[in-house]
Design a protein around this nucleic acid. Structure first.
Length: 606
DNA sequence: CACGACACAAATTA
DNA sequence: TTAATTTGTGTCGT
């Protein structure tokens, strides 16, 4: 099984990936979606279906689960065949976990030892797991040149770092960085065609079709049961001494194909680095009471020749808990407990790492996240993979997931944003040059790096590992994620969680949504790269992703280099099971530097 | 209780 | 091996 090997798979996948991802496009018809109609297949559609499906099959999922976790990645890679609608996100474990002991667990999941393995590289492999993202929600407003064929879009995302499971929730510390990487594909054309040749059209709200100049991915976050937006900020390595930005949408070309090298030009991947939540979730740590959850949202925008940004797809992360205090505060008390499964988690861990490759850099700026905000219903996270074919879904009842709670934005909505005019409330400034900066909270220093973009979706969906258990439930729950569902009254947090988890798990497993990794993108790299390459990160200076050469910024140097190989830190450790344990001990650190993760703290503290 | 700022120190990378 | 970088997080003050 792959599972175990995730790491490896990873690599492989990664390497290969490129191909797969893109290509894959699986065409399938989408089920139902009327819109999609035509030949094109839509990924998105798939996603949905998948997701839904997933629920149903909890069992399967479970099975999958295990494998899935691992596989997921791989599978993803696999091919296109599958679709991966949703993204995946893996996150990493790096973060400090509250508990020491436990912490490891998360990681454990990770199968590989990789982490340890070579350091530098290890990262590469590393798989961290992280919250998963739901499958892509299509807005059905993207058409091929014939103006009649709907193109489906699939966005895959993963949280690379900063998250660990605590009490079955994907958790991170507000003060720590997390990273999100995403890739997307258009059913009809992937790879290569990028933006520049757009034979792709987008339907604006007014019903008119516009040529798509390019696509951008933005990250944003909101409160789980509501539409309240949570601000995300990116830092440069300088941290407080450097500028802080809001992650702006970054340009990205479809397909991920990047070749391995990718790198360079490819903007297939967008990574938002050094991202933090501006605020912590309410009740963190403490009892269940009413734990608040946040959800990361990744939105795909099509930029028209007029500069308007129209949302064409999005995906959400599993619910996330953001701790506002130092790990020491959480350590003793709550540990994270994982479910029994947790153990599994470890096992499952799976995952592959993900770091992303960063190909893309982002650049453009745009409004970002905020905008979209709402939206999407999310689908469940998916993961990709399972190897097994699942039976899929057949039915799908539906999951609430989809349902939009209230909102439901529907697909079509595009928000059209004009860059120029952006609606967003926030102040974004766009810098054309620096995409990253766009929103900058602060003006970007010239050099600085780009800000990170938004975090993608970390959904808490459980990891792979954890998963096992959940298997159970079905769709019955509403999705937490989706705000939609719960929104108002919704279930309390707990409920939510539950759902999430389940969903997540389910989804993940089954669906395969997970895009993440899969596809070939090298997430790992991405991370590493993140900064530099363009894609990602924020601040990094460079901003440009795509076409333009990235500016250098802080990152640039390092990062760029990194892209290729190294990662920078943290990213990725993978864990192998056995290793895991060991690892646990170690934690992984994050990269660079340093922080001591758990160890110190606790110990010291203790 | 949370958040922001300051600062230390570990884990990695170069 | 050593220096530099990066970043987790303890602590303090608000």
């Amino acid at each position: 099984m792959n599972s175990v090997h995730d790491n490896k798979d990873w690599q492989n996948t990664m390497s290969n990936q490129q191909g797969p991802l893109q290509s894959p496009s699986i065409s399938k018809a989408e089920d139902s979606s009327p819109k999609i109609a035509h030949s094109t297949t839509a990924f998105s559609s798939n996603d949905y279906t998948q997701t839904t499906v997933i629920h149903q099959h909890s069992q399967q999922q479970q099975q999958i689960y295990s494998s899935a976790a691992t596989t997921a990645t791989t599978s993803e890679s696999d091919t296109n065949a599958n679709r991966l609608p949703g993204m995946i996100a893996h996150s990493q474990p790096n973060t400090p976990r509250p508990d020491n002991s436990e912490a490891p667990l998360y990681r454990q999941p990770i199968p590989f030892a990789t982490r340890n393995v070579v350091r530098g590289r290890a990262n590469l492999f590393a798989n961290e797991t992280g919250p998963y993202f739901s499958s892509t929600k299509p807005f059905d407003n993207l058409y091929s040149s014939d103006k009649s064929t709907l193109l489906s879009v699939r966005v895959q995302s993963k949280m690379d770092r900063g998250f660990f499971l605590a009490d079955n929730d994907w958790t991170c510390y507000r003060r720590n960085y997390f990273q999100v990487s995403s890739v997307f594909s258009v059913h009809g054309f992937n790879h290569y065609y990028s933006v520049n040749e757009p034979h792709v059209l987008v339907k604006a709200d007014d019903g008119a079709l516009y040529n798509v100049q390019r696509f951008l991915l933005g990250v944003s976050a909101r409160v789980a049961n509501s539409e309240k937006e949570i601000e995300l900020i990116q830092h440069t390595p300088k941290r407080d001494k450097g500028p802080q930005y809001r992650p702006a949408p970054k340009p990205i070309t479809p397909g991920g194909n990047l070749s391995m090298s990718s790198v360079a030009n490819n903007q297939n991947i967008v990574t938002f680095e050094r991202v933090q939540f501006k605020t912590a979730t309410a009740n963190n740590g403490k009892r269940r009471a009413a734990q608040q959850y946040y959800i990361c949202i990744i939105e795909l925008f099509a930029e028209t020749d007029r500069g308007q940004l129209i949302k064409v797809g999005s995906c959400q992360s599993a619910p996330l808990v953001v701790r506002g205090r130092s790990p020491g505060h959480y350590a003793d008390n709550h540990q994270e407990r994982h479910h029994p499964y947790a153990a599994n988690t470890a096992a499952s861990s799976v995952v592959t790492g993900i770091t992303a490759p960063l190909d893309a850099t982002a650049e453009s700026a745009t409004p970002s996240s905020t905008l979209s905000g709402k939206t999407e219903p999310l689908t469940p996270p998916g993961r990709q993979q399972m190897q097994q074919p699942q039976p899929q879904q057949q039915q799908l009842p539906q999951p609430m997931y989809y349902s939009k709670p209230q909102e439901t934005p529907q697909p079509m909505m595009h928000h059209g944003y004009d860059h120029h005019q952006q609606q967003q409330p926030q102040n974004y400034t766009y810098y054309s040059s620096y995409p990253q900066y766009t929103n900058a909270v602060q003006p970007p220093p010239s050099n600085v790096s780009s800000p990170m973009s938004h975090p993608p979706l970390p959904s808490p969906y459980t990891h792979h590992a954890q998963v096992p258990n959940y298997a159970v439930h079905d769709a019955s729950h509403p999705d937490p994620y989706s705000n939609e569902v719960y929104q108002t009254n919704g279930p309390t947090t707990e409920e939510v969680k539950i759902h999430h988890h389940h969903h997540q798990q389910f989804q993940m497993q089954q669906t395969g949504p997970i895009e993440s990794p899969h596809s070939g993108y090298d997430w790992q790299r991405a991370r590493y790269n993140s900064s530099s390459s363009g894609s990602s990160s924020v601040p990094s200076p460079g901003g440009h992703q795509g076409n333009e050469p990235p500016p250098q910024t802080y990152f640039s140097h390092h990062q760029q280099q990194q892209q290729e190989g190294r990662s920078y830190s943290p990213t990725t450790p993978t864990y192998s099971p056995s290793i895991l344990q060991q690892q646990q001990a170690r934690k992984y650190n994050t990269g660079g530097g340093g922080a001591p993760s758990n160890l110190m703290n606790k110990q010291q503290l203790a």
